[in-house]
Amino acid sequence: QEVDTIELTRQVKEKLAKNGICQRIFGEKVLGLSQGSVSDMLSRPKPWSKLTQKGREPFIRMQLWLNG
């Protein structure tokens, strides 16, 4: 299904801030990505339709983390 990447990243940033989790830790533990990649993804999320399967994976992980 289509994911609203802008809304998703907004919710993730909100939860990170609320729980005092830094992007570096979130990136390493949840997404398996560097802090730079995570920062870029959270500040400039690409539309779901423009992402490859590999590009979608971190957003799917974010969704699971939010719902977890």
Rank of each mutant, 00 (worst) to 15 (best):
P47Y: 05
I60N: 11
P47H: 08
W48G: 00
S37C: 15
G27L: 09
L64R: 15
K29G: 07
R44Y: 12
W65P: 00
V12G: 13
S39Y: 10
L31N: 03
S37K: 15
V3H: 06
I21C: 02
K54Y: 02
P58K: 12
E28M: 08
P45N: 05
L42A: 03
Q11A: 09
F26N: 00
R56P: 00
G32T: 04
L31C: 05
E28L: 09
N19V: 14
V12M: 10
R10Q: 08
K50A: 10
K13M: 04
G36L: 12
S49H: 14
E57K: 10
E14N: 11
L64C: 07
C22W: 07
I6T: 12
P58I: 15
L16P: 13
L64Y: 13
Q53A: 14
F26E: 00
N67R: 12
L8E: 13
K46G: 03
F26T: 00
V30S: 01
L66Y: 00
L31I: 04
W65K: 01
K13R: 09
E28Q: 09
E57W: 08
L16D: 07
D4M: 08
T52K: 09
W65A: 01
K46T: 06
L31R: 08
S43K: 12
E14I: 05
T5N: 05
R10H: 05
P47R: 08
I21S: 02
L42I: 07
G55Y: 10
A17W: 04
R10K: 15
F26K: 02
S43D: 15
G68R: 08
K13H: 05
F26Q: 01
L8I: 15
G68C: 05
K50S: 12
I60F: 06
E2Q: 10
G36P: 11
N67C: 06
Q23D: 02
L51A: 01
L66K: 01
G55P: 01
C22K: 05
L64Q: 15
S43F: 03
K46F: 05
R24V: 06
M41L: 14
V12W: 05
E14W: 05
N67Y: 06
C22V: 06
D40E: 14
E14T: 09
M62T: 04
I25Y: 13
L31W: 08
R61H: 02
N19K: 12
G68K: 10
R56H: 01
P45M: 04
K15G: 03
I25W: 14
R24K: 11
P45S: 11
G27T: 06
G32F: 03
E7D: 01
G68P: 01
G68Q: 06
Q63E: 04
R24C: 06
L31F: 09
Q1T: 12
E2I: 10
C22P: 11
E2L: 03
C22Y: 04
I6R: 11
L33K: 10
I60M: 11
C22R: 07
L16W: 06
D40S: 09
R10S: 09
A17V: 10
T5R: 07
S43G: 05
L66C: 02
V38C: 10
L64F: 03
L8F: 08
L33N: 05
K50I: 15
K15Q: 09
T9W: 06
L51D: 00
G32L: 04
S39H: 11
V3S: 11
E57S: 06
G20C: 03
I21Q: 07
K46R: 10
I21L: 11
M41A: 14
Q35F: 14
L31Y: 03
S34V: 08
I60K: 13
D4A: 03
G32D: 03
N19M: 14
Q63V: 04
G20Q: 15
L42R: 05
D40L: 05
F59D: 00
Q35P: 15
Q35I: 09
N19P: 14
E28Y: 05
L33F: 08
E14Q: 08
T52F: 07
S49Y: 05
K13P: 07
N19D: 15
G32S: 06
Q53R: 11
R24Q: 10
D4Q: 03
L64D: 14
D40G: 10
S43A: 13
W65F: 03
G27V: 05
I60C: 08
R10Y: 04
K29W: 04
G68V: 01
T5P: 03
R61N: 12
T9S: 08
E2K: 11
K13V: 02
P58N: 14
R61L: 07
G27C: 12
R44Q: 05
W48E: 00
Q11I: 04
S37I: 11
K50P: 00
L8K: 14
S43C: 08
S34D: 12
M62P: 00
I60D: 04
P58G: 06
R56I: 01
V3R: 11
S43I: 07
T9G: 11
S39Q: 13
L33H: 07
S39W: 04
G32N: 06
S43Q: 14
E14A: 11
M41C: 13
N19G: 10
S39C: 12
L33D: 04
I6K: 15
K15M: 08
L66T: 00
L66E: 00
D40W: 07
V30D: 03
E2M: 10
L64N: 15
G27D: 01
P45R: 07
S39P: 09
S37G: 09
Q53I: 09
E14C: 10
E2D: 04
L66A: 01
G36I: 11
K15V: 05
F59N: 00
T5S: 07
V3I: 15
M62C: 05
L16M: 15
I21Y: 14
W48N: 00
E14F: 02
Q11N: 05
W65I: 00
V3E: 12
G27P: 02
E57N: 11
P45V: 08
L8H: 10
S37P: 07
Q53N: 12
I60R: 15
G32K: 10
Q53E: 08
I25D: 15
R44N: 14
L8C: 06
W65L: 01
D40R: 01
T9Q: 05
K46P: 15
Q23F: 04
C22A: 11
M62E: 00
P45W: 09
P47C: 10
L64S: 15
S34T: 06
S39A: 13
Q1F: 10
S49N: 14
S34W: 11
Q1A: 15
G32V: 01
L8N: 13
R56D: 00
T5K: 09
Q1I: 10
E28R: 12
R56M: 05
E2A: 04
R24W: 08
F59V: 00
K13E: 06
S49L: 05
R56W: 02
N67D: 06
N67S: 12
G32Y: 02
K15S: 05
E7A: 15
K18M: 11
G68W: 01
K29L: 01
E2G: 11
F59C: 00
G20L: 04
L33G: 06
G32H: 10
K46L: 11
R44M: 12
K46A: 11
P45F: 07
S43H: 14
I6F: 11
R61C: 04
K50Y: 08
K13D: 04
Q23P: 12
W48I: 00
R61Y: 03
M41I: 12
K13Y: 02
G55L: 12
